[in-house]
């Protein structure tokens, strides 16, 4: 037959490695599930607990919203101030981490490693530590959120800095600008919209984070979550969840509108 002109048909690539990969993942998940005693039957056996719980949430204790409004405002303040301080602190760090600003290699790499280490520490953990240092107050939450914000803002911003257009920088160097002028007129105008957008994005994250920081004693609405859960007052818990939800969505919407205008 003429179809054999081009020699034998190439055999299908082996799918063994793919299957092995799937089996490997399955085994890892299975071992992990056994390790943490994640027996699906426990869940279904106790699922009536869940329905009881959901039942006791209704109707939500709407009056609790008025009681907790000062704490909710505290939460927003914490997020706002935390984001602001984080923003200020992240400005020098993001320039240090960008490869195209400072040509001192070891300094850039060291800052990046430092930033990566900072980013691994979860917000709630920072809050727990600062609550121990500064006492149970919103101040602890603000400090924790500031440090947490540095990780996000600096990381996103230095990547934006590395992606800027080199043209203006080269022309400025050509006419003899010094480093500070170079940054102020060559780099900043290019990254400013991105930077503001990242700050707003961080603010959105921080509102969510600030709402739960109170669970470890760092002020804000989380204190009331702790209290309501401690008293098994699930109708209050639901009221809090819905309240937080509305605030988060509102702030997200405002922030999204501003960000759309910026970029």
């Amino acid at each position: 037959m003429d179809t054999k002109l081009n020699g034998p048909v190439p055999s299908k690539p082996s799918r063994w490695s793919f299957y092995l990969f799937l089996i490997g993942i399955f085994i890892i998940v299975l071992i992990s599930a056994i390790y943490i005693d994640a027996n699906p039957f426990t869940f279904f056996r106790n699922s009536e607990n869940m329905f009881d719980l959901i039942g006791s949430m209704f109707p939500p204790a709407w009056s609790y919203i008025a009681t907790t409004t000062p704490a909710m405002l505290d939460t927003i303040r914490m997020a706002l101030l935390g984001t602001t301080f984080g923003m200020i602190l992240s400005i020098p760090i993001m320039f240090l981490c960008a490869r195209n600003i400072f040509r001192i290699r070891w300094l850039v790499e060291a800052s990046r490693i430092g930033l990566n280490i900072l980013r691994t520490i979860p917000d709630l953990l920072l809050a727990a530590i600062f609550a121990a240092i500064l006492g149970f107050s919103p101040i602890a939450g603000i400090v924790a959120l500031s440090i947490f914000s540095i990780g996000i803002i600096a990381k996103l911003s230095f990547e934006a800095i590395e992606n800027i257009d080199n043209g203006p920088l080269e022309s400025m160097t050509a006419v003899g600008a010094n480093k500070l002028q170079w940054i102020a007129f060559g780099v900043v105008p290019q990254i400013l919209p991105h930077f503001v957008s990242y700050v707003l994005y961080t603010f959105e994250i921080n509102i969510r984070a600030a709402a739960i920081l109170g669970l470890v004693g760092a002020g804000g609405i989380g204190l009331y979550y702790d209290r309501a859960l401690g008293f098994f007052a699930y109708d209050q818990v639901l009221a809090l969840i819905l309240y937080t939800l509305v605030v988060v969505i509102l702030i997200d919407l405002i922030s999204l509108k501003i960000r759309e205008k910026l970029l």
């Binding site: 943490i36 005693d37 994640a38 027996n39 426990t42 869940f43 106790n46 607990n49 869940m50 969505i249």
Partner: peptide
């Protein structure tokens, strides 16, 4: 919009405190 931590608090009520609740 549901924070992980709040979900964890709810699941603790269902399956008891521990890793299982955290996983859910």
């Amino acid at each position: 919009t549901m924070p992980d931590i709040i979900l964890a608090l709810l699941f603790i009520k269902v399956v008891g405190p521990g890793a299982y609740a955290g996983m859910l």
